[in-house]
């Protein structure tokens, strides 16, 4: 157990290091000379050389990489062009809205996906199974940004059930103090019902669209895991013993798949961050995804590299957590 954990930590360290290298390479692929980008075409030879030295570009590549890695590890990402502030401060500001959206989306993904998967497994081959399969296929095949746009047309413009893009109406902007950074929780803490309702009406649609993809994956895998368990002999034994079907299903079969499910959920949560990039663009959600795309479109490489690195690191850590959960919770791996 200890040796396995140590080996895994080593592998995570190697992956993180490779991630740094990959980001460094991406940063060096710029088709334009980074020095010219700073000083302009008309700069004299002396200015060019001076800036080049100051940027450290006259050093050997390995030393440049070493500096880059040290800076990144310490969170010195440089400053962003659009906001003019350090990238690290921007990231601290844009992450809470994304985490709020992703968590809400994940809650929907689990709330819809798990029951749908269980039903599909129980009624395999029947109409419930087919409906679950179709919803799953749409969740996998429809572009999330298109679903978002169509959702806005139907639920915002036509039915008026939800509010439009953004996290909250301008009128309520700044009404509650950001304590946790999660608007729903902050509004609850401040006891401000109006803000709570408004924030709710803004988040519900993007979170549902984001959660649909997760629900599709979770339901398909829940179905597969459960079918595998239900076909085994211990189920027959438990039934023959006289246990009710519900008890066998939940206490025996479901308990056995719960570890696998947790792994799937942790990994899907990481992928929600990816989905957030497009969803946030559609819904003008002031989170990480929109910050990332805005930085991209303005060619702000400091911000782009920092975002890439952070998402990569989150993925690596999530993968590690999923693995760890498996090892801690499943007695068979001990």
């Amino acid at each position: 157990m200890l040796a396995a954990t140590a080996r895994q930590l080593g592998s995570v360290a190697v992956t993180l290091f490779a991630l740094l290298a990959l980001t460094f390479v991406i940063g060096r692929m710029l088709p334009i000379d980074p020095v010219i980008a700073v000083v302009g075409e008309a700069a004299s030879r002396e200015t060019y050389d001076m800036v080049r030295t100051r940027m450290g570009l006259d050093q050997p590549v390995l030393i440049q990489f070493g500096r880059f890695a040290l800076d990144m590890v310490q969170g010195r990402f440089g400053s962003a062009i659009i906001t003019g502030r350090p990238v690290i401060d921007d990231l601290a500001r844009v992450f809470p809205p994304t985490i709020e959206l992703a968590t809400f989306g994940m809650a929907i993904g689990i709330g819809v996906g798990v029951p749908m998967g269980v039903l599909a497994a129980l009624y395999a081959g029947r109409w419930i199974d087919h409906i679950a399969r179709i919803i799953g296929l749409i969740g996998h095949s429809a572009p999330t940004f298109w679903l978002g746009l169509m959702g806005l047309v139907v639920f915002y413009a036509m039915l008026g059930w939800v509010d439009g893009p953004g996290r909250i109406d301008d009128a309520f902007e700044g009404d509650v103090d950001p304590v946790t950074g999660f608007l729903l929780i902050d509004a609850l803490l401040a006891g401000n019902g109006e803000v709570l309702v408004n924030a709710w009406r803004h988040i519900v649609l993007p979170a549902s669209i984001l959660g649909l993809g997760a629900a599709a994956t979770i339901s398909r895998l829940t179905r597969a895991f459960l079918l595998e368990q239900l076909g085994q002999e211990y189920i027959v034994t438990a039934r023959a013993k006289g246990l009710s079907f519900a008890r066998v299903l939940w206490r025996h079969a479901f308990a056995n798949i719960s570890v696998q499910l947790i792994t799937v959920i942790v990994l899907s949560y990481a992928f929600l961050l990816e989905g957030a990039v497009l969803t946030e663009t559609v819904f003008a959600w002031p989170g990480f995804g929109r910050y990332f795309t805005n930085s991209l479109l303005t060619g702000d490489m400091n911000a782009v590299l920092a975002c890439t690195l952070i998402v990569g690191a989150i993925f690596v850590v999530m993968n590690m957590l999923a693995d760890l959960a498996y090892r801690l919770l499943d007695p068979r791996t001990r």
């Binding site: 991406i26 940063g27 088709p31 990332f292 991209l296 490489m301 975002c307």
Partner: peptide, 8 residues
Amino acid sequence: LAFIAALG
């Protein structure tokens, strides 16, 4: 996206 940011 990161690659395109670098390549254009």
